[in-house]
Design a protein around this nucleic acid. Structure first.
Length: 282
DNA sequence: AAGAATGTTACATG
DNA sequence: ACATGTAACATTCT
């Protein structure tokens, strides 16, 4: 569920909440699979007493650096979220990890679908090492995107969703960026013109920045929808031009938005604005 | 009530 | 090696 803007919003909120400098006085794991690659006992023992040195983001991962060269890396996958509560509050049945802090608060990991993962490791590069460039990094120029894209024959949408190629994009922002750049999701990457690549580069950065500015995208009201700590909801929903707008009008040309399937993912396009380039026609 | 859901990965097949 | 498709993970929402 959360993509780059949502994860960054959460990381910013965790920092604002004053977690840096706090230490973990105890940990509980209620769903062992939420912790990757180690027993719950080992996880709790290793994290206990550790002070939080910083909280950052890489791709869709939250990276918490701890003492002793250790990092806690969290991926929220589809429905993971954090709640900051008083240490004696009673967790409901979707709380899978609780970290009690030394100041009377506790951080709860809430994850209805249980796909989210905690990694406690001294070697963060084993998890983060294969990720592509950060699209909002100022070094990420149009030429970088061209490098990534022009030698691949994959369909552009699944390529952009591949975190080894470019980091942080998910289904919402890819659909939005492709709409903005007027590129069809099935167009094979190596057939994009230089203009299209420049346009796509601008569109990716625009939709991500806009998502960030609006504190993320929250769809609907269910508990599977994004919210930052304190149940804070994003406001980016009304900025979406095509995503989950099947049957509504394209705000640019007034044609009807249609939904299709691309690489197993629901995909929304304007069939008038987004057409496969002639280079790819048989 | 079947199908889809904002994510990733392992495996199979071409 | 690369592209693509399927299933799996587990639960809720439509």
């Amino acid at each position: 569920m959360p993509e780059l803007p949502e994860v960054q919003t959460l990381v910013d909120d965790l920092n604002k909440a004053g977690l840096v400098g706090r230490s973990v006085s105890r940990a509980h794991v209620h769903w062992p699979k939420s912790v990757h690659g180690m027993s719950t006992q080992r996880f709790c023992r290793q994290i206990k007493g550790q002070t939080i040195l910083s909280i950052g983001r890489r791709a869709k991962y939250i990276v918490v650096s701890l003492q002793d060269e250790m990092s806690l890396i969290v991926h929220l996958r589809m429905t993971g979220r954090f709640l900051l509560v008083r240490e004696n509050d009673k967790p409901d049945n979707h709380i899978h990890v609780t970290l009690t802090l030394d100041d009377g608060r506790a951080l709860w990991f809430h994850d209805t679908r249980k796909f989210g993962r905690f990694y406690l490791t001294g070697k963060p590069e084993t998890i983060l090492g294969t990720l592509g460039p950060e699209p909002l990094d100022r070094r990420f120029k149009s030429e970088c995107l061209e490098h990534i894209i022009s030698c691949r024959t994959r369909q552009i949408k699944p390529l952009l969703l591949d975190q080894r190629v470019i980091a942080g994009l998910g289904n919402i922002y890819v659909d939005e960026a492709l709409w903005m750049a007027r590129i069809h999701p099935l167009q094979s990457a190596d057939t994009l013109s230089a203009d299209q690549i420049r346009s796509l580069h601008r569109a990716i950065r625009h939709v991500l920045r806009q998502g960030l500015k609006n504190a993320g995208t929250t769809l609907g009201k269910g508990q599977g929808n994004f919210s930052s700590i304190g149940e804070r909801r994003g406001r980016n929903h009304n900025q979406l031009k095509v995503f989950r707008r099947t049957g509504q009008k394209c705000p640019r040309c007034l044609a009807t938005v249609v939904k299709m399937n691309v690489g197993q993912r629901g995909t929304h396009i304007c069939p008038t604005c987004q057409v496969v380039g002639t280079a790819n026609l048989r």
